[in-house]
């Protein structure tokens, strides 16, 4: 041992001694915490804080340097639901919850990410595993179908997988009319196949305990599927039947979109009227307010002003509006 290292040892020794020596005989709890060599509590706590600081600092430094080796979020080691159900023993329901949380994180994280190539590759496998682990997990089928059907980039745009998931739910719980109704909704809203939608609504209406309004919904969908009135009826019933805040918010948003579509028609008519009377297009909403065609600049149901293109006279929903984008199939041109 060199003289320098001896000195260092001596100074550590005296540091421990001074920490030990002060304040008379140690209290019993302190004595219990002290090691055989009398390693004082103060030194111990100080050392732990110092070392933990070093550990966290190193971790942060490493993360800054090596972003590229972050684990791939799109990794799913086991894809077989039945296998996971077996190995979970009697803890399959809690495992289903874990996979459900993972599903929400995958969907929400991808949807909100700023990436241009959003990939929802794991959404269906995660939902399949969740519902295999807990076949009665109704929300996983219902939300899962909504997530899967949602058009890209807000979702994977896979109504086929959504229907598949709902059919799995129907096999597990044939008494749940909601799955049949949701399948009809996907045919209506995303696939625009109103005949199939009406068939699913009809099947839902035949399930014992299903609500009365499924029958008129079936008739309306069959007669005038695709127009705004029947869409409004569909979403209004969805809102009233929703047993969950998320479903309620979704239905409220869609109803607001339908109101915005009506607004756009009315505003386009006003612009056309102004043009026919003056011979030119209005350059802003203020011109229409000045002409007493409007009382104020129009705003959508979310409170965002509508956009008026002075060059073409086209009235559009602002891109920053929470209602954007509006369902294309219900636009009138």
């Amino acid at each position: 041992m060199t003289a320098g290292s001896k000195g260092a040892v001596q100074s550590w020794g005296s540091a421990f001694a001074s920490a030990r020596g002060s304040g008379g005989p140690p209290k019993p709890w302190r004595r219990r915490l002290a090691g055989p060599e009398g390693f004082s509590l103060k030194t111990f706590v100080f050392s732990v804080i110092l070392l933990m600081g070093a550990i966290i600092g190193l971790q942060i430094a490493r993360e800054r340097q090596t972003n590229s080796i972050e684990p791939d979020e799109r990794l799913l080691y086991v894809r077989s639901g039945p296998l996971l159900e077996k190995v979970s023993l009697s803890y399959d329901a809690v495992m289903a919850d874990v996979y459900w949380i993972r599903t929400l994180q995958h969907y929400g994280g991808t949807r909100l990410s700023k990436k241009t190539d959003k990939r929802y590759d794991l959404l269906y496998p995660l939902l399949d595993i969740t519902t295999s682990l807990d076949p009665k997990f109704a929300i996983a089928y219902r939300f899962g179908a909504i997530f899967l059907a949602e058009g890209y980039p807000d979702g994977p745009g896979r109504p086929d997988q959504a229907i598949e998931l709902l059919k799995k739910g129907m096999r597990a719980q044939p008494q749940k009319w909601q799955y049949l109704h949701d399948a009809g909704f996907i045919y209506y809203w995303w696939l625009e196949d109103f005949r199939s939608a009406a068939e699913w609504f009809d099947r839902a209406s035949r399930v014992p305990g299903s609500p009365w309004w499924l029958k008129p919904l079936t008739a309306t969908t069959m007669a005038q599927g695709g127009d705004r009135a029947s869409s409004r009826l569909l979403w209004q019933q969805m809102l009233e039947a929703a047993d969950n805040d998320w479903l309620r918010q979704n239905a409220t948003l869609r109803l607001a979109q339908l109101i915005a579509l009506d607004h756009l028609d009315q505003l386009s008519a006003l612009v056309a009227r102004y043009k026919s009377s003056t011979g030119h297009l209005p350059s802003s909403w203020e011109i229409l307010v000045g002409a007493r065609l409007l009382s104020q600049a129009p705003i959508d149901p979310a409170g965002v002003p509508y956009h008026l293109d002075p060059a073409t006279g086209a009235v559009e929903l602002a891109e920053k509006s929470p209602l954007h984008p509006l369902p294309a199939h219900l636009r009138r041109h």
Partner: peptide, 19 residues
């Protein structure tokens, strides 16, 4: 955990508690 589960707090608390 219940805060992350889109309205399934009670189900998850029961599952987790019993497990």
């Amino acid at each position: 955990l219940g805060q992350l589960t889109a309205g399934q707090e009670v189900k998850i608390i029961k599952d987790l508690g019993l497990a």
